[in-house]
Write a protein that binds this DNA or RNA. Sequence first.
DNA 1: CTCCTGATGTCAGTTCCTGTCATGACCGTA
DNA 2: TACGGTCATGACAGGAACTGACATCAGGAG
Lengths: 187, 187
Amino acid sequence: MGRWEPNARDRLQRAALELYGSRGYEQTTVAEIAARAGLTERTFFRHFADKREVLFAGSSQLEELLVKAVADAPAGLTPMGVIMNAFDTAGEYFPDVTYPRARNAVITANPELMERELRKLARLASALAGALGVRGVSEADAIFAAEAGVLAFRVAFSRWVSDDSDKPLISVLRRSFADLQNVVAGI
Amino acid sequence: MGRWEPNARDRLQRAALELYGSRGYEQTTVAEIAARAGLTERTFFRHFADKREVLFAGSSQLEELLVKAVADAPAGLTPMGVIMNAFDTAGEYFPDVTYPRARNAVITANPELMERELRKLARLASALAGALGVRGVSEADAIFAAEAGVLAFRVAFSRWVSDDSDKPLISVLRRSFADLQNVVAGI
DNA sequence: CTCCTGATGTCAGTTCCTGTCATGACCGTA
DNA sequence: TACGGTCATGACAGGAACTGACATCAGGAG
């Protein structure tokens, strides 16, 4: 596989996160990222579709993990139960808070990066709804359960990275789902 | 106010929607939009921050309307009740489906435009959560109620523009909120 | 050793977007 | 009427994001 210096993709991701974090996203050029990784601008765009995508390489892995968890969930659960069960497994996908925290700080600091984050989460919700559909859940229920799950996850993630107490993500997630259910239930 | 040919901003919006719709967003250049409106590229960027923003001029109006509805809601309602009440008034903001339908077709056809749409909805949710906070709702409850409301609205809007029966938006909205509540309630 | 494959480099070009200065229409005032 | 101020627009230059086309170069297969 890799000839030349290996792990070009990883080096680009690392260089981008460092530069976005120190200098800011807008003040960083793709040429600078590539140079720091010992590569050229053209090679950057062979690995990542655009300047934002370099921060979102792992999102498809998370999506696959969650979709698989939905598919493998035990029978007899409600749609929302399946989703909550799936996000429990996502808690293990984020063992340490330091890297997600650094990445989150960069993303929340820039509207363009937030846009991309929201797009990835929308794609995740769509994939989860599809996986629920395979289980026989109606399209409407699947969409709402998946979107509600992503909403709870998004809030939980935000709480998790901005909290100093180093609680595990899974406990924050459970609390988040409970809060959502309570609020939505209130007429 | 307006010297020269008036309504430059409107002309730009119209030209953009037409070209995005016929030729596609990516195949349309800003210079072409400006030329169709009888203006120059530079003037386009004086009216709109970027090539996407030209489709989202009305979103701040909707936000103001909904925030005001939250602020003016009767006392004694639950957070979710306040939000549902506010979105009822939004139904009147969209009397006719034809323009929203054309706009929606353009947006859903392009990922970059979808990103901007999601950002606008996230901003709307944040504003609504803030308005709930002013009413004394806790931050957690405010965020979940606002985000859940925007979720129900998003699904309702999507159903509304893709439905041929020309049901009024408000009835689709109520159905959407009810579906969301039912699904989220299920453990 | 030679051929082939695939990752990278080089270069030209388009488009988005911005800064800067010039222009010209409208308005108020004398 | 004349004149100056204001402000939307035009004209121009330039940076940076991205893309297509072609060259190059390391290593593996034969």
